[in-house]
């Protein structure tokens, strides 16, 4: 197993751990925080996967994913704050 795949495995385990907070709550703001952390970890693991499989396209997908998840977080935050 290469070092890149090992890194991705650890990152995936961390995502599962963050999902504990996503399901437990207690408030919806806590769930958004957990979702935000998972998004960051997904972007990081996409970049590492690009090195593992030598696919540059994965990094482009990671950039688009980071921007779209940012817009998603902003809209959920606006909705929670009652401004939408």
């Amino acid at each position: 197993m290469s070092i890149w795949l090992f890194t991705v495995t650890v990152l995936a385990a961390l995502m599962l751990l963050a999902m504990v907070r996503l399901f437990k709550g207690p408030t919806s703001a806590d769930r958004v925080v957990a979702l935000d952390a998972i998004n960051t970890l997904v972007v990081a693991s996409m970049i590492v996967l690009a090195a593992a499989f030598r696919q540059i396209l994965f990094v482009d997908v990671a950039i688009v994913y980071a921007l779209l998840s940012f817009v998603g977080t902003l809209y959920i935050a606006k909705y929670l704050g009652g401004e939408l």
């Binding site: 703001a29 935000d36 921007l67 940012f70 977080t73 935050a77 929670l80 704050g81």
Partner: peptide
């Protein structure tokens, strides 16, 4: 994006 998103979440939590 992470710094700005954190600010948005904090503001929403405050408004709630």
């Amino acid at each position: 994006t992470n710094a700005t998103g954190a600010h948005a979440i904090a503001r929403a939590a405050r408004r709630r």
